[in-house]
Design a binder for these strands. Structure first.
Length: 585
RNA sequence: GCCCCCGUAGCUCAGUGGAUAGAGCAACGGUUUCCUAAACCGCAGGUCGCAGGUUCGAGUCCUGCCGGGGGCGCCA
């Protein structure tokens, strides 16, 4: 429980943490010293349940129900709780006093961060995500890395950490010989205008086709790679142009998608080229490097190939060229030694797992990744079509991200037009943008990232179920209440939750910081999604059962305050996911 | 052949070693002169892939199998 490396400060307003903190010293003393986790958990039978008596009784060799009774009778929780009762084999069911909930809610409502406080021990977190390839179209395959990475950036920042975004674009390597030659063949002007329109796919494919057809082109391409790598100025100008056209295009996609990536975050493979010889020298000096089939390799223990032989990480090919293992190692060094990273997240597809494990293992063996610095592969699964196979367009090609996003906005616009015709064209366009893009992002973020998920327009854009439109709608309804409240000149006041529905909503609101902590510990934005969905459900249930503006006096002002806090939590939570919450829809 | 990931309701998915495994969708039955019904309430739906093991307690941890996906030397 005590963890000085915790990513999120334990909230003083979290009733679960409060119970835990009260019980810990008492239990520890009862156990004769040593840390004891009270194991406070959500419960179906009460506001919370304490399970800690069972393992401790086992340890002390006493009866768990007796120990649970002892805990209850210790009086540690008396001022917080309305009821404490021992149940089953030794659980303690906790019912918080209404006054406890009121008090904590008031504190959270007065806090602009809703109880989510900046870490007192901020870490330097490098997050590697998106990583499209220069001269190639961004397709649905880049969606997950970009969206998940963006959410993590926002969450780590909110928790008070120093976040460094790194967009490791594919801007170097063998294909650039053919791309530059193709650019020259087309003439710079033509190519420039073609790429400017975002028609990157056909450019790349044309170059590729020429490469496989013409030996003369292959030869030129190979020579061009050599020129590029040797720093030939004329070649570099052309390369620069290709990269600039692509990154300008990426920026338009990022803007449409509403992610934080900007040019300053670009850190493509080319940036690590100058660092590779030194990386190799350091590996050499470490004594880890050996030679295998003419290539320079390192054998991290525990990895085997098809034949059961040790599997090498190849850091220099037989031909003398470096590859992505070398570049990834240089990258680790750069992030730790130049940027001062103590946590590195790689938001990269699951198939890269073994490669990354090997890179991390070698970096550790070489002493580049000391104690206290960690690298985490934030892996994710595929986006599937309704046929459960990789999502493809009708023609069987990968789906362009821009096409996907504009279809999302179109569909959202049609839905808004049908359901709220009173919005002006401009309002509708803005709202459709938030709903459409939000729906795509939420669909991606709301399931465990490591699994594949099925991409389905109707489901993600539905206004009910676990979707962003449902959450956005809950938020918009609250905003509507406040527009009306302003007209009527009423405002929120002191919080006092009484009805079961508002009490349940209030208790859930207090869990916001803890759920962000939970999501961060496992780099799992879907945990935040689940929380927000439950919040929206609890709100709509409250909204049905507890009249707000139609009540009066203290009840009305209290309910308005609960509404306000709910709206702020929904908006902030969606914000951490990179999703906007419109005030009307 | 070896390694990794996944397998939970008809469908899409949650589930921190804790009580009777939960939502949503679809289906069925209700609710609106009332703050956005784009909603809510109710009802039903399960051999948690299978078999062992550890544990006071296993969907969760361990082992083996079955099914699906992915990876396994010089592309990135």
């Amino acid at each position: 429980m005590v963890n000085e490396r915790a990513l999120v400060q334990t909230a003083a307003t979290d009733p679960f943490a409060l119970v835990s903190a009260r019980l810990e010293p008492w239990l520890s003393q009862r156990a004769g010293g040593g840390a004891v986790d009270p194991v406070v958990r959500p419960s179906d039978h009460a506001d919370a349940q304490i399970n800690g008596a069972l393992p401790l009784a086992k340890q002390l060799g006493c009866n768990p129900r007796d120990l649970a009774t002892e805990i209850v009778e210790s009086g540690q929780l008396d001022d917080l709780c309305a009821a404490l009762e021992v149940a089953g084999p030794g659980f303690i069911n906790v019912t918080f006093a209404d006054s406890t909930i009121d008090h904590l809610l008031t504190e959270v409502a007065n806090d602009e961060h809703l109880g989510l406080h900046k870490s007192s021990e901020p870490r330097t977190v490098v997050i590697d995500y998106s990583a499209p390839n220069v001269a190639k179209e961004m397709h649905v395959g880049h969606l997950r890395s970009t969206v998940i990475g963006d959410a993590l950036v926002r969450m780590y920042s909110a928790a008070g950490h120093k976040v460094i975004r790194e967009n490791h674009i594919g801007d170097w390597g063998r294909p650039f010989g053919m791309l530059i030659e193709h650019l020259l063949d087309l003439g710079e002007e033509v190519a420039s205008s073609g790429l400017g329109q975002g028609d990157l796919d056909s450019f790349y494919k044309a170059a590729n086709a020429k490469f496989s057809e013409s030996e003369e082109f292959q030869e030129r391409s190979r020579e061009r790679v050599v020129l590029l790598q040797s720093g030939n100025p004329e070649t570099h100008v052309l390369w620069d142009r290709l990269v600039a056209m692509s990154t300008a295009y990426f920026n338009t996609v990022y803007e449409q998608l509403g992610v934080l990536l900007v040019d300053d975050d670009l850190m493509g493979e080319s940036k690590y080229q100058p660092l590779m010889p030194a990386t190799l020298e350091r590996l050499e000096a470490s004594g880890l490097m050996s030679e295998s089939d003419g290539a320079k390799v390192v054998f991290p223990p525990g990895f085997t190939n098809r034949d059961g032989d040790p599997l090498p990480l190849i850091v220099q090919a037989r031909t003398g060229g470096f590859n992505y293992a070398t570049s990834d190692l240089a990258c680790v060094i750069d992030r730790i030694e130049r940027l001062g990273a103590d946590l590195m997240l790689y938001v990269i597809g699951a198939p890269q797992q073994q490669h990354l494990e090997m890179v991390f293992a070698v970096a550790k063996m070489a002493g580049w990744m000391p104690e206290g610095v960690s690298a985490v592969h934030v892996a994710f699964g595929n986006v599937l079509g309704d046929d459960k196979k990789m999502l493809r367009s009708r023609s069987g090609e990968s789906v362009k991200l821009v096409d996907l996003l504009s279809e999302a906005v179109d569909r959202a616009s049609a839905a808004v037009e049908e359901k709220n015709p009173s919005l002006s064209d401009a309002e509708r366009a803005a709202v459709a943008e938030m709903i459409g893009i939000g729906a795509v992002k939420y669909a991606d973020l709301s399931t465990d990232r490591v699994r594949d998920y099925v991409f389905n327009w109707d489901r993600m854009l539905a206004f009910d179920g676990n979707t962003s439109p449902y959450l956005q709608y809950a938020h918009a309804r609250i905003c509507s209440i406040f527009r009306r409240a302003a007209e009527e000149g009423v405002s929120s006041g002191e919080i006092a939750v009484r009805e079961p529905a508002e009490r349940a909503l209030g208790l859930h609101l207090l869990g916001y910081p803890a759920v962000v902590a939970d999501a961060l510990e496992s780099n799992s934005p879907h945990r935040l999604c689940t929380y927000l969905f439950e919040l929206a459900q609890l709100f709509t249930s409250f909204y049905e059962q507890c009249p707000v503006l139609k009540s009066d006096g203290d009840t009305r002002s209290s309910r308005l305050a609960v509404c306000d806090l709910t709206a702020r939590t929904l908006s902030a939570g969606l914000g951490l996911l990179g999703i906007d919450a419109p005030e009307q829809m």
